[in-house]
Design a protein around this nucleic acid. Structure first.
Length: 484
RNA sequence: GGCCCCGUCGUCUAGCGGCCUAGGACGCUGGCCUCUCAAGCCAGUAACGCCAGUUCGAAUCUGGUCGGGGCUACCA
């Protein structure tokens, strides 16, 4: 039997990192099994859906390197893969189930429902509606023609229970005492999540439903519908949720939850993907850096962790730095250039591009995020430097700084061949003559040139900057010291 | 309140009855390297929630307890 899995987000928000992980696990499972990955749009909530969110979901998945064999955009044998186009089908199923006795039109009022819930809570029981206000066919028809069509509820067999073996959690049993006669079709004829999702899973021949643990309690409902439809029962795998540092479900107040925010914050898709896969799954050995090929090769749903994972951005940053450093320098430079240009708001001249190309590999070793690149190469662009106040105060206010700046200026002036090696020789000679330590002697030069005590390696930075601007900046810094 | 899920270092995890004086990774601390910052290397820090039981032996099995989380809509 060929494995068929699906990822079915609702376009009611940007793709959440937790959703990204769920999609990734579905995708890895499909790829590992040689199965089919279906992307569906559970867009039954017409009020909250937006095209923008829909587009974001597609973009975010693609960014993560996840592709789909069937589904929205790419098509397949099952139509548009959008639930909003399938309302007649859901209605048809609901009516069939009513006709077969598995479901009924319901006449309970909101007040009656509320009263029953309150009563159940008082009695210490589960707030479960048992269908006591079900309508006869005639009553339902009368209400419909009166312009007040009743909803359709599923008739949960009582007494009874639903049991199944969850692929990640093992055997799970729900007594029907705790499963109420849920609404499948609303009064307005629209399907609820339970109906639409289950009908699609059955119609699309899904074999494994891999989703968040938050819908574990709804699973008996889905199994009940599936069986009433005469459909094949799917396997279920419920993934633990992602938490914030405080152990609560990851939400806005913990920071960014949208995958796109991480892209915007300068994270590499390879790093995010690796980080996400590690959150709840381990390749088994002591390695955490795992290539996409290895993920596919070794991924196993059964060994997915049952406990919730905290989304730790610090570790993501480390991993991102790792992936950044692992890139071929040429590739890194090519990727970074448009980022820098976008940050600067203009394209670089060919001289600037050359200077950037010279220091880019050095920045590559130092960056954790793509957003850190521009600040580190900013000093190469244009004639002006912006001095960081703290950096200036820290190294420029000593007598040694004067000595260093004067010495450096003279030494560099004499350099004809403006190469990294020649610059280093000149500055080392200056240190020798002035008896300054490397720290004391070079930091003032660094601040004079880059405006900061933190920068790419100094000699390379000067080489990239050029002799003229280097000397200008040193004298500029000396002038600035005199003025102060 | 009811139902369900979960419980190994601060965090992500390995562990499936003896190989555990519990391993790895991130973080943190110290050291080396060093023109700053990183990176790299070395060392250190730190956990089986608790109580019973089963067993010659339990992080691993069972029960309870405590703690955390999720669900509890004509939202998905």
């Amino acid at each position: 039997m060929t494995v068929r899995v699906r990822f079915a987000p609702s376009p009611t928000g940007y793709l959440h990192v937790g959703g990204g992980r769920t999609a990734l696990y579905n995708w890895l499972f499909a790829r590992h099994q040689g199965g089919t990955f279906v992307l569906r749009s559970d867009d039954t909530d017409t009020e909250r859906n937006t095209p923008e969110f829909q587009a974001d979901i597609l973009e975010s998945l693609t960014w993560l390197g996840i592709d789909w064999d069937e589904g929205i955009e790419s098509g397949g044998p099952h139509g548009s893969y959008r639930q909003s186009n399938r309302f007649p089908r859901y209605r048809e199923v609901a009516e069939t189930l009513v006709a077969g006795g598995s479901a009924y039109y319901d006449g309970a009022t909101p007040e009656q429902l509320e009263a029953m819930r309150t009563e159940a809570e008082k009695a210490g029981a589960s707030p479960v509606y048992d269908g006591r206000f079900r309508l006869s066919a005639a009553e339902a028809a009368a209400r419909t023609s009166a312009g007040n069509p009743p909803p359709v509820r599923f008739a949960v067999p009582r007494p009874g229970e639903t049991r199944f073996v969850d692929v990640v959690r093992g055997e799970i049993v729900f007594s029907h005492d705790n499963v109420d006669d849920f609404v499948m079709l609303r009064g307005d004829g629209s399907p609820t999540y339970h109906l639409a999702s289950t009908v699609d899973d059955v119609d699309y021949h899904i074999t494994h439903v891999i989703r968040g643990e938050d819908i574990l309690p709804s699973t008996p409902k889905h199994i009940l519908i599936t069986e009433a439809m005469g459909g094949e029962r799917t396997e279920y795998a419920h993934l633990s949720l992602l938490n914030g540092p405080d152990g609560k479900k990851l939400s806005k107040r913990h920071g960014d939850t949208a995958l796109r925010a991480y892209r915007d914050a300068g994270f590499l898709p390879t790093a995010v993907r690796n980080f996400l896969v590690i959150l709840g799954w381990s390749p088994g050995d002591d390695e955490e850096i795992v290539s996409i090929e290895e993920m596919i090769e070794r991924f196993d749903l059964g060994s997915v962790s049952r406990n919730p994972a905290v989304f730790d951005v610090t570790k993501l940053e480390w991993m991102n730095g790792h992936y950044l450093r692992a890139m071929p320098p040429v590739e890194f430079t090519a990727m970074a250039l448009p980022i820098v240009e976008s940050d600067l708001g203009r394209t670089l001249t060919s001289d600037e591009r050359q200077a950037f190309g010279a220091v880019a590999p050095l920045v590559q070793e130092r960056a954790k995020r793509l957003t850190e690149i521009t600040p580190q190469v900013r000093f190469l662009i244009g004639d002006e430097v912006t001095y960081e106040a703290a950096s200036w105060d820290k190294v420029m206010k000593t007598a040694e700084a004067t000595t260093a700046l004067d010495g450096a200026s003279a030494a560099l002036e004499a350099v004809d061949d403006w190469s990294v090696a020649a610059i280093e020789t000149a500055l080392r000679g200056m240190l020798e003559r002035t008896s300054l330590s490397a720290g004391k002697g070079l930091q003032p030069v660094r601040v004079a040139i880059t405006g900061s005590t933190v920068s790419p390696p100094l000699f390379e930075s000067l080489a990239a900057l050029g002799k003229k601007r280097t000397l200008q900046r040193i004298s500029g810094a000396r002038l600035r010291r005199d003025i102060r």
